[in-house]
Amino acid sequence: MAVIRQLVPWALAQCVKLLLLLAAVSVASFGLMELSPIDPVQAYIGADMMRVSAEQREAIAAYWGLDQPPIEQFGRWLTSLLQGDMGTSMIYRTPVTEVLAEKFTASMWLMGTAWLLSGLLGFGAGVLAAMKEGSWLDRVIQWVCYTLASTPSFWLAIMLLLAFSVWLGWLPVGLGTPAGVLREEVSIADRLHHMILPVLTLSVVGISAIALHTREKLIEVLHSDYVLYARAQGERGLLLVWRHGLRNIALPAVSLQFASFSELFGGAVLAEQVFAYPGLGQATVEAGLRGDVPLLLGIVLFSTVFVFCGNMTADMLYRILDPRTREVKA
């Protein structure tokens, strides 16, 4: 219970921090968008530009409230935002909240699976490298990790596509669902089939950071005084790593993984683009390319909350699980 009592003020502080952050992000992005040379009306009309008269343009601007002064626009946007209404996406022609919900659900499967996979694989590789510190295996793992960290993720995606879809023909070239099939008819198997390559790309991209971090930490632990003492007590090999190593590196590793939501989201944007996976990443690109201001603002706010949640969870795990921060010194 003491834990909960300690967590409450912290959680409140976090909420205040998030609100401040969101306020700053919305003011800044909204303000900057006003200054931008992009014309939202044109974005709405898209390719039909030629066929739209000046009157029609004005009508559209009035409809979206674009003829009002910026402060007023921001005020309107903010009041509706506070009521849970983020406006209407210009390209999807549906409320931004709906677009976000639908696209994020799709992305969540992708990111969630990749997040888990990269975490497990990276952790395993890191542990292996640290246990064999200095061996060829360690060197290979490090080399691969550093190389992966320098690899453009979209190029990796293209290479996977080339290998598995074009050459081997095992997996479909793109699209989260097969073209021409109604959403309801898509079987889970189909969907999984289309998820394999994006997930693979995203997982491989995520391995490097966690593996190098885990290796570093475990080596530090294995050279620590307490492991020396454990060895003096006859412990060794896997048992030793299991008892003292994993106990001491698990928390930092899991925390790091939670703190990596920012890179995960960025990776998803690129991977979804290559594989034409209809998720939030692709929506981000679309919104940016076609000037869908409400959607872009919505995504910016949403991704801020997403990253914030990851960082907060990382922090919270330490507070709940590490005995050193959990209890006051006796």
């Binding site: 992009i38 890179e263 944007v269 940016g288 991704s303 990253v307």
Partner: peptide, 20 residues
């Protein structure tokens, strides 16, 4: 904090978009 709280790529897209 502010700059670390948004995915880099989203921020990049946003800034690119704003600057045309």
């Amino acid at each position: 904090d502010l700059f670390l709280s948004m995915p880099h790529l989203v921020l990049l897209i946003l800034i690119s978009f704003i600057l045309g």
